[in-house]
Amino acid sequence: MATYRASDSKREQFRRYLEKSGVIDTLTSVLVALYEEPDKPNNALDFIKLHLGAAGLDPAGTEGLRLELADLQQKCSLLTEENKELWKRLMQYEALPDEKADL
C-alpha cells in the first residue's frame, strides 16, 4: 500500500509540474482546436505538431533551406580545398628563404 501512495504522490507532483509550466493549458487548447476543426485533418499528429510549433517551416520553406544548405556545403568544400592549396603554396615560399640561408 505504501508504494501505491508513493506512486500517487509522484503522479500528483508531475501533474502540478505540467500545470505550472503551462503544458496542460497548451495541450488542451491544441486538442480543442483539433476538436473544433470542421474538416478533420488526415494526420492528427501533424496537426498537433503544427499547432504546438514543433512542425517548423512549411515544406516549401524547408526545401528552400535544404537547397541553401547544399549550396553552402559545396562552397565550404571548395573553400577548404582552396585553403589547402594556398597553405601548400605558402609552405613552398616559406621553405625557400631557409634554403637560401643555407647557401
Rank of each mutant, 00 (worst) to 15 (best):
M1I: 04
A2K: 13
A2D: 15
A2E: 14
T3A: 12
Y4R: 13
Y4I: 03
A6I: 10
A6G: 07
S7Y: 10
S7Q: 15
S9I: 02
S9H: 03
K10F: 05
K10G: 08
K10H: 06
K10L: 03
K10R: 06
K10M: 10
E12D: 05
E12K: 11
Q13H: 11
Q13R: 13
F14R: 04
R15F: 14
R15C: 10
R16T: 06
R16S: 05
Y17I: 13
L18E: 13
E19R: 14
E19K: 08
E19V: 06
K20C: 10
I24T: 15
D25M: 11
D25N: 12
T26D: 10
L27Q: 11
L27I: 02
T28R: 14
T28W: 06
L31D: 03
V32W: 02
A33C: 04
A33L: 08
A33K: 04
L34T: 12
Y35C: 13
Y35D: 15
E36K: 09
E37L: 02
E37S: 04
P38C: 13
P38G: 06
P38R: 02
P38T: 02
D39N: 15
P41W: 00
P41L: 04
N42D: 11
N42G: 13
I48Y: 08
L50W: 10
H51Q: 02
H51R: 09
G53L: 01
G53Q: 02
A54H: 00
A54E: 07
A54V: 07
A55H: 00
L57Q: 10
D58E: 10
P59H: 03
P59F: 11
A60L: 03
A60M: 14
A60Q: 12
G61V: 00
G61C: 01
T62C: 01
E63Q: 07
E63N: 02
G64A: 13
L65I: 06
R66F: 13
R66P: 02
R66Y: 06
L67N: 14
E68A: 06
L69A: 13
L69S: 12
D71M: 14
D71S: 12
Q74R: 07
S77Q: 15
S77T: 09
L78K: 00
L78R: 01
T80I: 01
T80W: 01
E82V: 00
N83G: 11
N83R: 14
K84H: 00
E85F: 00
E85I: 05
W87L: 08
K88R: 12
K88I: 00
R89F: 04
M91L: 12
Q92G: 09
Q92V: 12
Y93N: 01
Y93M: 13
E94H: 02
A95T: 11
A95V: 04
L96A: 15
L96Q: 15
D98I: 07
D98H: 07
E99N: 03
D102F: 14
